[in-house]
Amino acid sequence: MGGPALKRVGIRDVAEHAGVSIASVSNALNRPEQVSETLRQRVRASVDTLGYAPMPAARQLRQGRSGLIGMTVINIANPFFGALIAGAEDAASDAGMRVLAANSDDDAAQERDHLGLFESVQVEGALVAPFSDTHTPVSRLRGRGIPVVLVDAIDDAGELASASFDNVAGGRLAAEHLLATGRRRVLFLGERDELAQVRDRRAGAREALAAAGLDMPGERLARTDPASGLEFGARIAAADPADRPDAIICSNDHLAMGLVRALVDGGVRVPDDIAVVGYDDTQLAEVAAVPLTSVRQPAAEMGRRAVELLLARIRSPRAPRQTVVFAPRLTVRASTVG
């Protein structure tokens, strides 16, 4: 059996120890300019002796603030979204705020629940990397005076600020690279009509191939994770070499990792037999068994910029709605050039 629970030291304990009123302690901690230096030192000595830790969240709520930014992402298992959250947390911390991160896990209902949670805990603003049509819950947040910024997506209606990526240009860049290395039978792996980001990547790649007089078939997947890549890669490795593509563009690095693993295990040479391009250029791309060529999305920078846009809206609801779009860059590694 454990011992008795330790009693939390409160502001009343500090006041009794210092021999002053609770109001004096509150002023010394929160409005030090209103009290004497002697009182400040007296209260500080009691705080240090007792180990008192103020509760900023409670203080902020009394002031009508939560100090929280809500953030929902599509799938936190994907390293891209982990980096996106990390960038947002850095920027929020610099502003004295915290990020309440939520994982939709490729589930529209779960995404709606998270947005409802943000409303109930009174976040000061919300960052949404949308998995689905979030119009209704986002409208409800905005109706409560909670500003919203889209991340990794653009608001077609032009009502919301956003920090996103030029995915059409990114898809085009991947396809043009494969064409330059002599590939002609290119497959797009991980089509998902519910995700605008993936639709744009596919469209950009198809544009580049069409300009070269080539078609690009696509493979639709329910999830774009390593397990799906492993499953599809095993099928390709088992197929007749004459029926295989000579290059595959994956909708993200997460999927590409599983694909490359299965191809190599199945005796398919990457890139000699099949070249593979990923998307996001996560840290894992560089350290993979076959280092992965990938279209770089500056995830952490995007997260930081999104918070800056949101803070501007929190401070001034009339602030201009900005649309920030990051440009693509291709990082070329062994999965396409050997």
Rank of each mutant, 00 (worst) to 15 (best):
S139P: 02
L178E: 11
D155M: 10
L178R: 06
A180W: 07
A129P: 03
D107M: 01
V168L: 09
G170N: 11
L127D: 06
V99G: 09
V186T: 15
A95S: 15
A163P: 06
V198S: 07
L173E: 10
R183T: 01
E124V: 08
V121I: 14
S104E: 08
L214A: 10
Q110F: 02
V168M: 01
R142Y: 02
D215F: 06
I154E: 15
P217Y: 09
D113W: 02
E194N: 10
L214D: 04
S162N: 13
D90K: 13
V151F: 09
A153I: 00
L127W: 06
E124P: 04
D215I: 03
R220W: 00
D90T: 13
R172E: 15
A101N: 02
A169W: 06
I154A: 14
L195K: 01
G213T: 03
G170H: 11
S132F: 00
A210K: 05
A174F: 05
V128F: 03
G143H: 14
A102L: 14
L100Q: 03
E191C: 01
L178W: 09
A208V: 10
A196W: 01
E176G: 12
R192P: 02
H177P: 08
L221C: 11
F131R: 12
R184F: 00
D166I: 06
G145R: 13
M216I: 11
D94R: 15
N103E: 08
L100R: 01
R142V: 14
A88E: 03
A157V: 04
A180P: 06
S162Q: 05
L117H: 04
A180D: 12
V128P: 04
L173G: 03
A222H: 10
R206V: 07
L100I: 13
E159C: 00
D105E: 13
D107K: 09
L100P: 01
D94P: 00
D155R: 05
H177C: 14
L141R: 12
